[in-house]
Design a protein around this nucleic acid. Structure first.
Lengths: 142, 142
DNA sequence: TATTGTTATACTCTATAACTATA
DNA sequence: TATAGTTATAGAGTATAACAATA
C-alpha cells in the first residue's frame, strides 16, 4: 500500500471505531452497563478472578478509574472482592452468583443493536468483521 | 454461524472497539482534537460544507452536542460558519485556511499510535482491518 | 523504594430540557 | 407546527495528584 493510501486508511479506521462506539453507546438501555464495565465482566468470565491493576492494564485505563468501575459493579452486586492469598495489598475481583446470571443481560440493548446491524451484512462481511475484532483486540492490548 | 458463536462474536466486536477507542484516546497529545472533532473535520474534507444537524446525524450525536464541538472548532479557528443561502435558520460549516492546514496534524499523536500498531501486523491482517473499517462505518451510519 | 489500592478533585464528552428564530 | 440552532444544566467516564498500606 502506498504511504498516502495507508494514511487515509488509518484515518478511516480511527473514524470508524469512534463512530461505532458512539452508536453503540447511544443504543444503551437505562439499566445498561458501560462498555468498560461490560468489558471487565467479560474478562472475569474468560480469565477468572483478577486484581484491579491487572484489569486496568488490560483495558488501557488507570487503576484509579478501574477502581471506580469495580466499586460500581460491587455496589450493584455483580462482583465481589476476595483478599489476595499471598499479597496483602491486592484483592481478587470475582463474580457473584448474581453477576454470572446478569452478565449478558445488563448489556442487552447494546448487544441487540449490534446483532441487528451485523445481521444486515452478508456472510463474507460478517466474517471480515469478526476476524477484524480479534486483530483489533490484539492491537489494543499491545 | 451457530447462534452461540454469533453471540460470542458480537461480544468480542463490542469489546474490541471499546478497548481500541480507549487506547487511541490515551495516546492523544496535549493539543489533540477529540475523536468527534477530528471526525467532523474529516467529513467536511470529504463532503464539503455541512450544517450542524447533518453533522450530528452523520456522527450519531444530538445537535446540541455537535453544536458544542463545532463551537470549539470555531473558537480554535479551524472552521467558520456561513449563513445558509436559502434557509435563515441554518449555517454551513466549512474549513478556514488554518483548518485545512491543521486538519491532520491536530490528530497526529492518535494517528501515529494507530499507524505504529498497524505496522506490526502482516499485510493480510492490515487488509482485513481496512476492509472492516469500511464495513463498520456503513454499519454505524445506518 | 516500588507497588496496590483509595480518596479527592477536575476535566472531557455527551445528553436532556427549555428557549428563540425561521420555515 | 416543525425544524435549526443556542443556552443551561447534569451525568458518565476517565484523568491527575496525594495518600496509606504492604511488599
Amino acid at each position: 500500500m502506498k504511504k498516502s493510501h495507508l494514511d487515509a486508511a488509518i484515518g478511516e479506521l480511527i473514524h470508524a471505531v469512534g463512530l461505532l462506539v458512539r452508536r453503540v453507546r447511544a443504543a444503551a438501555g437505562p439499566e445498561e452497563l458501560s462498555l468498560s464495565a461490560a468489558a471487565v465482566l467479560k474478562r472475569l468470565d474468560q480469565d477468572g478472578p483478577a486484581t484491579i491493576s491487572s484489569l486496568a492494564r488490560a483495558e488501557s485505563m488507570t487503576s484509579q478509574s478501574m477502581g471506580t468501575i469495580v466499586a460500581a459493579l460491587e455496589e450493584d452486586g455483580l462482583v465481589k472482592r476476595k483478599p489476595h492469598p499471598t499479597d496483602g495489598r491486592q484483592f481478587l475481583i470475582q463474580f457473584t452468583e448474581k453477576g454470572k446470571v446478569l452478565r449478558k443481560s445488563r448489556s442487552a440493548a447494546k448487544r441487540a443493536w449490534m446483532a441487528q446491524a451485523v445481521a444486515q451484512l452478508d456472510k463474507d462481511e460478517q466474517d471480515v468483521l469478526f476476524e477484524a475484532a480479534k486483530i483489533l483486540k490484539r492491537l489494543a492490548e499491545r
